[in-house]
């Protein structure tokens, strides 16, 4: 049984990027398709409570947060430390994240620290015969492939615009604070 973590960050203005809600939607759908009861959402940044509250009704069964002033700016060393701590705290076997420039810079390195594997520019997620498959392009969009991996954790960066955006009402979330 997989454990899914949707890992998002807020922007310097405190708001969630639109692609974060796409990743949330993809996580909810993947959990449902794979028959997994619930998924986790991890938010990293500075002043993340409004972002957590905005995702209150997304269907996640667990919320985690790394909230620190140092994460108000995008920087490899601090972002990598936070993302690594978050993934370990969640015990995630599948980490879904939006392909923002911030995550694209840092999550491959985090995957190495976790002993996992990463796939970027994913344009689709599907479950077939109980296996999760990722669709992405090769050779400058001339070839499309569906691939899967046995190694875990498997970090999947979803291209922006590839998945429907989750939207819902805000609420109040009390997240587990992950110490970095």
């Amino acid at each position: 049984m997989e454990t899914i973590l949707v890992l998002v960050h807020n922007d310097s203005d405190g708001a969630l990027p639109k692609s974060a809600c796409e990743a949330i939607g993809a996580g909810a759908r993947l959990a449902a398709d794979a028959g997994i009861s619930g998924f986790s959402v991890g938010v990293i940044g500075c002043g993340v409570q409004p972002s957590l509250d905005a995702l209150a009704l997304c269907g996640a069964t667990r919320f985690l947060a790394v909230d620190h002033a140092e994460l108000g700016q995008s920087r490899y060393a601090t972002d990598a430390a936070a993302a690594e701590a978050m993934a370990r705290a969640a015990g995630a076997s599948i980490v879904l994240a939006p392909m923002t420039s911030r995550w694209a810079r840092v999550l491959p390195g985090v995957t190495h620290r976790l002993g996992g594997r990463v796939d970027t520019h994913a344009t689709g997620l599907a479950v077939a015969d109980g296996e999760i498959g990722v669709t992405r392009w090769f050779y400058r969009q001339r070839m499309e492939a569906t691939l899967n991996r046995t190694e875990r954790p498997w970090v999947i960066l979803l291209d922006q615009g590839a998945c429907p955006t989750w939207s819902g009402a805000a609420g109040r979330v009390t997240a587990e604070q992950v110490v970095v």
Binding site: Y76, A77, A80, P108, F138, R140
Partner: peptide, 25 residues
């Protein structure tokens, strides 16, 4: 790279070499 467009190889090389100051694009 133009062929795979992974955008991951440099970060993985850096981590293997213990380099934690990384910049992409």
């Amino acid at each position: 790279s133009a062929t795979r467009c992974a955008g991951a190889t440099m970060q993985l090389v850096g981590e293997r070499l213990g380099l934690v100051d990384q910049f992409q694009g």
